[in-house]
Nucleic acid binder design. Structure first.
Lengths: 218, 218
DNA sequence: CTTGTTTTGTGATTTTGTCACAGAAGAATC
DNA sequence: GATTCTTCTGTGACAAAATCACAAAACAAG
């Protein structure tokens, strides 16, 4: 247990032995199945989450049902936004969908807050993590506002390729549509064109990247 | 001078007399004329800025020349994002356009950083301000992604009305287009429709809100 | 080898963005 | 006060993307 915390929390060594113990004892382990959806927002949130195994997708939702993926959490990632509610001034609504059966350790918000109040290194870490996510989302915002759908789609496919570490992706048009915040039909039509252009090869539930270099230039 | 700092910086009273003096002496005063554009981003930034008088608009720019306004700075506001470069992990590109002749006091980034490193209250303030901006931009992102242009336009008009404190706004279609990140022609067409619907009255360089209540429901 | 479910494909329509100008309102100059 | 000049607004034509409404495959399970 302490081993996991030591590996994932950069400030671990700066904690006192006492703080380390409190943390290690307070951490809560949970398992989630693929398809589960958690919600953070308003005045309620889980706390700082550590992904022990599995994969999750953090996204925003429109009243009309539309979605756009902000980022994914992979094994070893630490999610600070799931503790947003404890930050003064930070009031955002997020959903998290478990994409692969996951085991997640949660540092309850009160526990994290106490340690953060006492320990400057932890506070610095929090600020840094928030800043990082802020940057990520600014980047996404720019992409969304200023790029056309085709190039956003191409980028997402390349991201998924990097994630999978393979040219063959087990992914549906629907997932891609949710990632980039558009309609499934639009993705289908564009992929069709990508295939005609020789960039990808399509089969049901599967996309094979044939020409990553040119896909990146779309 | 100290008076201004005391009024705008909530952590002022928590500083030591020494820190207060260092700050007061280090602050730089500058004046900017309407139309000036400043850029923050990458590894360079001004520092924490205090708007003594005037008005400015902070926005992002696309390679193709498109713009979208993130927020405005008014008299008495403190801009923390203009010091983004000193925050580890926070790497964003922003522009700031002076909309009214302004006098701005800047706390140089090194100075702010030193004080922030020594004083927990200042660090808390920084985290809170960043979080607030993060929230604002998440809200904007949601608006942009999930609302149609008409309702975004209506909302912006109402914001400008609140800002001006009057139903008659001295504003051009172009400004509104930059605010909501669309083309000027689109704004012209929509405003035309708003006028037909009896929501606003249009004259050159001027929009009069006739029915704010229904404009909010667009 | 049916029956269901998930995924993909397509046409028709609407909304929004882009391009290319034309016209109008004010400001500046003669 | 008439004329240029500049800024702002209006519009038609077209392209890109979103939305709606289904149909057709592909696969899974019984």
């Amino acid at each position: 247990m302490k081993e996991l915390l030591k590996q994932t929390l950069p400030f671990w060594e700066d904690l006192t032995g006492n703080e380390q113990n409190t943390l290690a004892q307070g951490v809560v382990k949970s398992s989630y199945e693929k398809g589960n959806v958690l919600h953070y927002g308003g005045r309620e949130c889980a706390g700082v989450q550590i992904i022990k195994s599995g994969q999750a997708r953090v996204f925003v939702t429109s009243p009309g049902g539309g979605e756009i993926t902000l980022f994914r959490l992979l094994e070893g990632d630490v999610s600070i936004l799931s503790a947003a509610c404890m930050m003064k001034g930070l009031d955002i609504e997020l959903d998290m969908e478990i994409e692969e059966d996951s085991i997640i350790y949660t540092i309850p918000k009160v526990l994290y807050k106490d340690i953060s109040d006492q320990n400057t290194t932890v506070k610095d870490y929090t600020l840094e993590m928030i800043s990082e996510k802020f940057s990520d989302i600014m980047w996404l915002f720019n992409q969304y506002v200023f790029s056309n759908v085709a190039s956003r789609l191409a980028d997402t496919i390349l991201e998924h390729r990097a994630l999978a570490g393979s040219d063959t992706l087990a992914i549906t048009h629907d997932v891609l549509a949710r990632d980039i915040g558009t309609a499934r039909e639009v993705v289908t039509r564009l992929l069709k064109q990508f295939q005609i252009d020789g960039l990808v090869k399509l089969t049901r539930g599967r996309i094979e990247v044939l020409d990553g270099a040119n896909l990146g230039k779309v």
